[in-house]
Amino acid sequence: MQLTARSLAGIDASSARADILAHIGALEGAIRTTAIFVEQYSGLPLRLVVLPEYLFTSYPAGETIEGFAARVGFAPDGPEYDALGKLAQRLGLYIAGNAYETDRHFPGFYFQASFLIAPDGNVALRYRRLLSMFAPSPHDLWEAYLDRYGLDGVFPVADTALGRIAAIASEEILYPEIARVFALRGAEIFVHSSSEIGSPLATPKDIAKRARAFENMAYVVSANTAGISGTPMPIASADGNSQIVDWRGKLVAQSLSGETYTAFAEIDLAALRAARRRPAMTNMLARQRPQMFAEAFGAAAAAFQPPGAMLDDGGIATPPPRDYFRKAQEAVIDRLLRADILR
């Protein structure tokens, strides 16, 4: 579903919360109508809907981490997820999407979370973005986060009636390691909520979607925004090119610009599973040798962003100021230069 994200910048918490719930409620008519058209066109029922990145709030726009979390962050057991669960129940399908989320174990923080809600209304998958330029990551709280959620909570894969599903958030489609870990944990479908430029040219994300699908023998279902309203940015700056890519890296459906449901296609899990089980040069997953790369990755790891950088000496998580993120990247670049990885 290629839909317009709404910025809530400058809106007080009470009004913002009301707007979010109204926005969730307004999705029902659009999805119901889409389900009718999809079934009439293809003869198949709609089973899975993927929504764009940060559809209900847009991005933080310079607000403090604590302030944004308190004003519009979704609590895992809060009214926003409850409303999304009831929507999935009424529609009888899976809904994947993306929102900024709080965590009572890490007060003052938000995480960018991709979710999958099952037709029974329960959250079947909650994945928190690991690689982001300007947002906290579970890696920034690594020891404390692993103690709380374990590795399964960092790299979750949902075993559903539709197949095994993992979520990739926005720019993370550009990083092959994210998708590879999910594939090694059994994922067959990657749901990708994004807000990105649309172009008739091949964008980096367009190229990456096909690469991640082919190299992991998995489907990529990618939903882009139809622009972002309520910001000074021209609305169509992040609009278009929602798409579905099959496990061969073939683009099977793609939208143009504007609000639309036209990126829809059949997910053929039987064909994917047969290909994964078949010895062949094209079996990219079975031909992998992960142990071969472990030592090289480990040798270079010390030059990059360290784990637990937002934990103080006592192991307490402390939200950083906004300028932290740029300074942290500058420090990584400096270490890469000193390690002779960069020149």
Rank of each mutant, 00 (worst) to 15 (best):
A5P: 04
R6D: 05
R6M: 11
I11S: 02
D12S: 03
L21V: 09
A22W: 02
A30M: 10
T34C: 10
T34S: 12
I36D: 13
F37C: 06
L48Q: 09
V49G: 07
L51Y: 04
E53G: 00
F56K: 01
Y59W: 10
G62N: 12
E66M: 05
G73W: 06
A96I: 00
A99C: 13
A99W: 00
G108C: 03
Q112A: 04
I117K: 09
A124W: 13
S132Q: 03
M133R: 08
V154L: 15
L162T: 02
A167L: 03
I178G: 10
G186Q: 10
I197C: 05
I197M: 14
G198E: 03
P204D: 09
K205M: 08
I207L: 14
A211N: 00
E215V: 06
Y219T: 08
T225C: 07
I228C: 05
P234T: 04
N241C: 12
Q243W: 02
V245R: 02
D246R: 00
D246K: 02
R248Y: 02
L256P: 00
A263C: 13
A265T: 00
A274L: 08
R277Y: 01
R277A: 15
M281Q: 09
M292Q: 09
A296V: 11
M310C: 11
T318C: 15
P319K: 09
R322S: 15
F325V: 11
F325C: 06
R326W: 08
Q329V: 11
D334Y: 01
L337M: 12
D340W: 11
